[in-house]
Design a protein around this nucleic acid. Sequence first.
DNA 1: GGATCTGTTCTTACACCGTAAGGCGACCAT
DNA 2: ATGGTCGCCTTACGGTGTAAGAACAGATCC
Lengths: 224, 224
Amino acid sequence: MSVEQAKEPLTRARILDAAVRLADASGMRAVTMRAIGDELDREAMSLYHHVADKKALIAGMVDTVVAEVAESGHAIHRGDWRSTVRDRCLEARRIMLTHPWAPSVIAQQEESPASAFALYDDLVGTVLEAGFDHALAHRAIHALGSLVLGFSNELFDPAPGGDVEPDEEAMRAMAATFPHLLEMADMELHAAEGALSMCDTQAEFEFTLGLVLDGLEARRAALA
Amino acid sequence: MSVEQAKEPLTRARILDAAVRLADASGMRAVTMRAIGDELDREAMSLYHHVADKKALIAGMVDTVVAEVAESGHAIHRGDWRSTVRDRCLEARRIMLTHPWAPSVIAQQEESPASAFALYDDLVGTVLEAGFDHALAHRAIHALGSLVLGFSNELFDPAPGGDVEPDEEAMRAMAATFPHLLEMADMELHAAEGALSMCDTQAEFEFTLGLVLDGLEARRAALA
DNA sequence: GGATCTGTTCTTACACCGTAAGGCGACCAT
DNA sequence: ATGGTCGCCTTACGGTGTAAGAACAGATCC
């Protein structure tokens, strides 16, 4: 019996890690105090010594993800502001896609996660140096932030893989009711050449990011 | 006893209405089957005859809000595509603000709400008529959708009213760690002249919407 | 009239959730 | 030894979604 090795002690960090892992694998529904406890081979109530309550735990999960985004910035090459900011946004999105639960959870937070400050400070520094004034920098932050957070939420992907054989009758009814939409879907599906869905979300994200960056550059040039 | 008037019968629509009302007033946490039942003077289990389960109920709530956005379009004046689309987006955002729970709940949906089709069909029709090709129309949809959904989620509002007397010491530490951010906050707070927060979210939304519309117009002009 | 059927509502019950309250053993300074 | 602190566990409670079936209403047919 004395062979039993002491269990790794519980830590806030280990708890948040387990929670994030659970959410990544099985969604937010699976993140319960008891499930996290199981993951770490402890009882649910033991978590409360390291985390105030579930709300704090979720805030911690958010902070973990935002910190991951902030750190991803340290690796990227610093060129002109446009490509620097572009790369950061692409990284941020990539990370969001590895944590599909994150955007909607972030949207529910009532306080900014602490690690967001470092992220934003860096971003603001980059654009100020490029000649943005403070007002434009501020707006840039909001524009880009909402883009990264909003784009994971696809409200519109009418043909998500599954329906191999679309119901003929329903299709005809749809075509009558939503002529433009069906026409567009037709063209885009044809252009996609047998892709699973008509939406290539990555391309659409990059397109929109381009729109926003172009617009910011135009405003910056107008300042000078 | 015979004076008792028959209770209004339960309906899917009445249930969804009550649920939305509850969420608007007290947040999603308050939306429980029992609470909805109370609101309608029924038992919780009675709801299940009109709604498959809670997931379906929430999908119905989303559909109600999206339908509200779709209908808000019927009233607006149809001018050039830019102002038409702009007005629709502003209306959509206004409606989102009356249902603060909606964006994060919409983000969790795995299927497009049915009423989104009418909304998008109308939007696609507007821009096609203005000379967009199908690919550009498709991207426009995604760009604008993510804007409306993403912008309610403010990740960044560092001074939200409450802290009247910011801790001097903490302030100094922050200034050392996040110089650009604090400088910007200073300038913007001064410019806002005693506003509650440095962020005027409506102005920031309209700014970003302008960026996106400008960009789309440039792409459209390049097609011709 | 009564009997039957059909669709709605209510009763009861259960498993699971977050977490309040307090107990128990291992360490550590006195 | 002794008392204190720290980390973890046990028990228990009220609230949640919902499965199963009973109770009730009104329409339909004899």
